[in-house]
Amino acid sequence: MRLPVLLLCLLAFAFRADKPAYRLYTPALKSTSYAKLLRQAAEADVVLFGELHNNPICHWLEFQLTKDLQAIRKGNLVLGAEMFEADNQTALSDYVQGKTTSKELAVQARLWPNFDTDYKPIADFAREQHIPFIATNVPRRYARLVSRQGLSALDTISADGKRQVAPLPITVDLTLPGYKAMMEMMGGTDGKAGAGQHGSQPDMTANFARAQAIKDATMAYFILQNWKSGQTVLHFNGDYHSKNFEGIVWYLRQKQPNLKILTLSSVELSDIEKPEVDNRNLADFVLAIPADMTKTY
């Protein structure tokens, strides 16, 4: 009789009674709930959902948050996403307004490869519920231009192109920790590289960070352009663009210091019950997901 009891004890130790797909934490890594996330999101002016692009839990929770916020804020919810570029706004609006089909949208807009599985459910819900959906990201050709030639290259684009970018000149602070860390990871030095016109390694590294910054600045600009007092903008973006309260957050604060912003940062952990110290203060809510979660691509 002792063997079965021992076996049961071993099984209880090795396998948990439940296998949650995610956990939510406060900035101090105290366990919190979806109900608190929803309540605070409904009270915010802007909600920045920092996703991991290929993570199904992120996309599922984005969809749930969209549906629940619509139920609370109906008529006062606006959606926005990094995954749609500003010059594709007409195509996105036509689809959400029911004027075109998904096949026409695929022809008219530069959709991400995982659109059908990860973002179409949200776009279809916006279509069904008549929720405005904003294409907030800078057209990739302009980000690519900055990464190769520096910020001054934006002065050469057409007047129509400039309407698809945050107003020039765009301030980029390369000493901000996120941009500085990006440059250090790429082999840069101290975030004080030159103007980026000569093709040296420091300039190329700094220009790559500047290209990320104009994405942040442009997303912040179009969020503010489409937000009105009393509304909530729910924005989907890669985690890098809003974690540590930087990126999009920094640019929003430059224009609207009193804006009520809520951020969520997504992390993958080997044990979601034990968040790591370096996950502290990433966002107002930290979304912990098992590292072995299946991917959408």
Rank of each mutant, 00 (worst) to 15 (best):
D124C: 08
I72H: 08
P139Q: 10
V78Q: 08
L8D: 09
V96H: 08
P121F: 11
A12K: 01
S147K: 10
K180M: 06
A209I: 01
L6N: 05
M204I: 12
A153V: 04
M185V: 10
V249P: 01
M183D: 00
M293P: 00
T294P: 04
T100G: 08
R140T: 07
M183W: 03
W60C: 06
R23V: 02
Q70E: 14
L8I: 11
A283Q: 01
Y119W: 13
L282H: 03
S31R: 12
V146A: 08
G150F: 01
E128H: 15
N279F: 07
D239L: 03
R73C: 04
E104G: 11
E104T: 14
N88Q: 12
V107W: 12
D87C: 04
K67G: 09
P275E: 11
P27R: 09
F222A: 06
N55L: 10
L154K: 08
L234T: 05
G161A: 15
F13L: 15
L65A: 04
R210F: 02
S33A: 13
I157F: 01
P290T: 09
N55S: 10
E276L: 14
N237Y: 03
D118E: 12
A288W: 07
T26R: 04
S93I: 04
L24V: 03
D203W: 02
L264F: 04
S102F: 12
K120R: 14
A166H: 01
D160W: 10
D45A: 04
A12M: 07
L61Y: 05
L105V: 11
P56M: 14
P139D: 06
I261N: 02
S102A: 14
V107E: 15
I272H: 07
S242K: 08
L6W: 05
N237V: 02
P56T: 13
Q254G: 09
S200K: 11
K162T: 05
Y179K: 10
T175P: 00
N258T: 13
K99N: 11
Q212I: 03
V138H: 02
D116R: 12
H241A: 04
Y142W: 11
Q149M: 09
Q256G: 08
L48C: 09
R148Y: 06
M186S: 08
Q256S: 15
L8Y: 13
N54T: 15
R39I: 12
R210I: 01
Y95F: 14
L145F: 00
P167H: 15
F115Q: 07
F63P: 02
L10C: 13
L52Q: 15
L105C: 14
L176R: 12
L77Q: 10
M186R: 13
G196M: 01
L6K: 05
L264M: 11
G247V: 07
S31G: 07
Q64Y: 03
S200V: 07
Y251N: 05
A195G: 06
L224P: 02
L269V: 07
Y297G: 12
L77F: 14
Y297C: 09
A288E: 06
A14V: 13
I261F: 06
N114K: 11
A220D: 03
G80Q: 04
A126H: 08
H59P: 05
L61S: 04
E85P: 01
L168G: 04
P177A: 09
V165F: 05
L262W: 06
D271F: 08
G188E: 00
